[in-house]
Amino acid sequence: MAPDQIVFWVFAPVSVGSAVAMLFQRNAIHAALFLIVNFFTLAVFYLVLGAPFLFAVQIIVYAGAIMVLFLFVIMLLGVDREESLVERLRGQRPLAIVLGLGLAAEIFVTARASLGLARGPANFDETVNVGGNAQALSHVLFRDYFLPFEVTSILLIVAAIAAMVLAQRRERTTVEAAGEAEV
């Protein structure tokens, strides 16, 4: 068995298992911790697929920044209560599980029919990752995808401003307060 096959068969069950565990965890913090495990396994898959740069970005951005943000909000809201199991729509949960299984089966059949056992070029690291993955990726990113790259910087600024506007505590305006004083 080749090393990458061993890595796949070790980490694929961990990945699916942690995702399922996240689904059934009733405590939000435990769900977040299982999601972090899942992100780490995905980072390992990126490494196997010849994307060491995305491996690092996955750990720094997802397992680091985004999940810390999640845990911070969980702490802020104090959502440590277990959620209710009342169903507003009858049969929603069984139906959702059946549809999810159907979706997975559908993509399984599609992938099997269209991809088969194709493996892609064997010498990926020599032909595509020329001079290292980060260098090759930066050539593609800054040559072919330069405009989208600049647009994402605008997107990040907009998101940062939006978060500040949304999260500030709204003080009652003086006009409102004066109107209430009259009443």
Binding site: D4, Q5, S15, V16, F45, L103, A111, A118
Partner: peptide, 23 residues
């Protein structure tokens, strides 16, 4: 690399399905 690409695609499909069931 000896692992077929379709294995990764199927794994990603399973994770996507778990995520949508979660939603």
């Amino acid at each position: 690399m000896k692992t077929p690409i379709s294995y990764f695609v199927v794994l990603s499909a399973v994770l996507f399905a778990i995520g949508s069931v979660g939603v």
